[in-house]
Write a protein that binds this DNA or RNA. Structure first.
Lengths: 295, 295
DNA sequence: TCTTACCTGTGCGCATCTGCACAGAGGGAA
DNA sequence: TTCCCTCTGTGCAGATGCGCACAGGTAAGA
């Protein structure tokens, strides 16, 4: 049974009783139908039809094929309408992966998305490793930093996260607050672990302070946050996050050169789907009203 | 969904995860697989797979297709084995049509056939009209008289039924018994209705007796039989049938020129099937031991 | 880091399948 | 019986689809 098209042809012949009728329904020439039947019977080693001048009458085997192929026809028709419908209705899982620390901004958008489309199951994945959009691990990814350039990925700019320099009140009480970057001498800083960190503000900082001033370094962003609140030093924080934390003091206000751009990344195979489009447009609209962010 | 082969291709890709693997299983070139997927997705308007360098990952639609096509694959495999098995095992309906009055010979054969193949349902059809072997009305037909010459029918000689002239004891007591065909004057005969009856012995009789001697004519063979027993006249009867009826007296013994040949007729499309072959060979074997019949 | 193996993707030439046209045959109606 | 319509069946020419070969790229392993 390694030629399903011939089964489909035989099904129509069994259903309609004539080669010509089947050919018309299938949109092929009746000679093609005859050849399909001949090939299928030859392969099966049994006659599926009795031939006579008025048409083809199915044998027992032909009637068996008829019933089997009938359900197949229906199954495929339902499958087709389901698949085509998938492009129209928004439902099923929606998997989004993002850089850690963006949940505070994303969750309200996801909640609104789910309110608009109740049939959607939202899964927000934040992890150390980067989830891959190929392999189908996620529908949408929110990436930070330099624009991703992977092939097969559709990259759109979302927004620029504004970063400022902050310190806890306890730190300011103990060490004072530098008035500008020219006043950093003697101050202590919380920063990322890697030397070659790709964030612009980390590079900016490394160019202006001595390495021994970077007293707290971690690979874990949550650790930066905690160290900042503990008063371990001065560090960069997203402006929108710091604004909601009254125990932090703004040391230097956000500057455009510190901005970290966010990117919406989707796989080209999924980008056109209605589900992805619905979320992306909602996300872009919501981002316009995000506080302390530059468009 | 007007190309089932492409669905089959997509199914293998979804199952195996790679185009190359699917191509190997399907026995085609991997370029063909790619083209099938592209065509199917284009027609559906949705992506079934996410493409990456290590293979194809099915999307939701692709996974849906996978489950549907999986059952289709199984259904077709079962269908194939059933159909191929039909050639091997003898089962299902077996429809035989025959000239009326042959049931006494056929029924024992049919009973033996059913004993050998318990899964067979036997249907013996005797009717005024001739059942057509094309259109699938019967698997085997037993025809009498001249050899059938319909195209697409396989005709085999079965046996020659011997006919003799018989009368009931009551007729003989009343009118006497003619010694030979030269002694037919004054006797009464039971015969068929049509002038141009094709049976050889009827023609033989019409040539030797006056029309007014054919006192009982009927289109119905059972009526000849009844009229014979009632003593209405002398008539032809199969020798095997008369031998079992003690109230009949043999007027003239069977002659070769009165023989009526029987033919086994099968449709060429069914002739090769195991079921038909099994019955035909059993019938031929049984006929060798039929009493009062000429091979 | 380099190598290797495997997978996807595409242009080209060819085989296969399809469509076309016509022949043949059977059934139904007048 | 005769005519007509419909259906099957086949040879031939052309188009579609296939296999081939090669390029490009990724991941795994040494």
């Amino acid at each position: 049974m390694d030629n399903w098209d011939e089964i489909r042809t035989a099904y129509q012949v069994a259903r309609l009783g004539t080669v010509s009728g089947a050919a018309e329904v299938l949109g092929v020439h009746h000679a093609t139908v005859i050849r399909h039947i001949d090939a299928l019977e030859k392969r099966l080693g049994t006659r599926l039809f009795q031939r006579h001048a008025r048409g083809y009458t199915p044998t027992e085997a032909g009637r068996d094929l008829l019933t089997v192929a009938q359900t197949t026809e229906e199954q495929f028709a339902q499958l087709s309408s389901r698949i085509k419908g998938h492009g129209e209705t928004v439902q099923g899982e929606f998997i989004i992966t993002s850089v850690a620390g963006l949940a505070g901004l994303l969750v309200p958008v996801l909640a609104e998305f789910q309110r608009l489309h109740p049939a959607v199951i939202v899964r927000l994945m934040t992890d150390m490793r980067i989830f891959r959009l190929d392999y189908g691990e996620a529908h949408v990814a929110i990436r930070a930093g330099a624009a991703p350039e992977e092939p097969d990925n559709v990259v759109q700019p979302l927004i620029r996260i504004r970063y400022g320099l902050y310190a806890s009140k306890t730190y300011v009480e103990a060490h004072g607050k530098p008035a500008s970057e020219h006043d950093f001498a003697g101050h202590r800083f919380v920063t990322a672990e890697q030397e070659g960190s790709r964030a612009a503000f980390f590079r900016w900082l490394r160019e202006r302070v001595a390495p021994e001033q970077l007293v707290f370094r971690s690979t874990e962003p949550a650790a930066w946050d905690a160290a900042l609140h503990q008063g371990s030093g001065i560090g960069f924080r997203p402006a929108w996050e710091a604004a909601a934390q009254p125990d932090l003091v703004e040391v230097l206000a956000p500057r455009p050169e510190w901005d970290s751009p966010l990117w919406i990344v989707t796989h080209v195979d999924l980008h056109r789907t209605r589900k992805v489009q619905a979320f992306v447009s909602l996300l872009k609209e919501s981002a316009k009203s995000w506080p302390q962010c530059a468009i």
